[in-house]
Design a binder for these strands. Structure first.
Lengths: 110, 110
DNA sequence: GTTGACGCTATCAAATGCGTAGCATATATC
DNA sequence: GATATATGCTACGCATTTGATAGCGTCAAC
């Protein structure tokens, strides 16, 4: 049986956004995508970059990300696919948002 | 002591993006933000919208989201704050991306 | 042949999430 | 006052997920 035969946690609609939210709403998934943005990483270097994430979880996440077509494994290790990179763009936008958000939180009333 | 004194899971850097990734990289968090976008919801209606999420988790997430300043509770129930709405904008962008992504996955080679 | 790095699995404990029941409050209806 | 309904939310016990640690099998260097 396919190991990707999970019925999608949060929803049964199959709507892409729900599938995506399910995927990235798992611990470490977004972080892994984030850390892969600069370039390929080996399993162990990626593990280090993610602050010592356990190999069990890292491997599970990498499997899911590969099945989702966001990551693949080449000679240089794991890297983002084309889709992974465009999703990474969205994360960069989030990064900008997060900075403003943090500023706003430090200065409760603008 | 503040109940928000969690040391931030994924990272200890305190970088806003990491704080954000930690927050939204929890099951249901993104989904809740997503469901609140159209307008305020009561605890129970929100629970229903999220496909029967357990009240335990819903309450935990709502607390975190309120502490993060993304959600607040008014007369009409829970609703997005200004920050929550702008983050919601990012999610809308993600929605668009997810649709394209799903299309691409159905058509392996464009 | 030993040392080191690699990807990854095994094992078990701890944290998190879930389903169900139900409390306390409020409002409305009798 | 008793009953009914809806609210937000907590308690409990079990299931799933995550986590830390150890270590295997492979490979290249030495």
């Amino acid at each position: 049986m396919s190991p990707s035969a999970k019925p999608v946690r949060g929803s049964t609609t199959g709507r892409p956004i729900m599938v995506l939210l399910d995927l990235i709403g798992q611990r470490w998934t977004l972080r892994i995508l984030w850390e892969l943005q600069p370039g390929p990483e080996t399993f162990r270097s990626l593990q280090a970059r993610c602050g010592g994430i356990s190999p069990t979880v890292l491997n599970t996440r990498l499997k899911a990300l590969r099945e989702a077509g966001l990551v693949d494994a080449g000679e240089e290790g794991y890297r983002l696919t084309e889709d992974g990179r465009t999703l990474g763009q969205q994360l960069l936008a989030l990064d900008g948002w997060a900075k403003d958000w943090a500023d706003r939180r430090r200065t409760p009333l603008a």
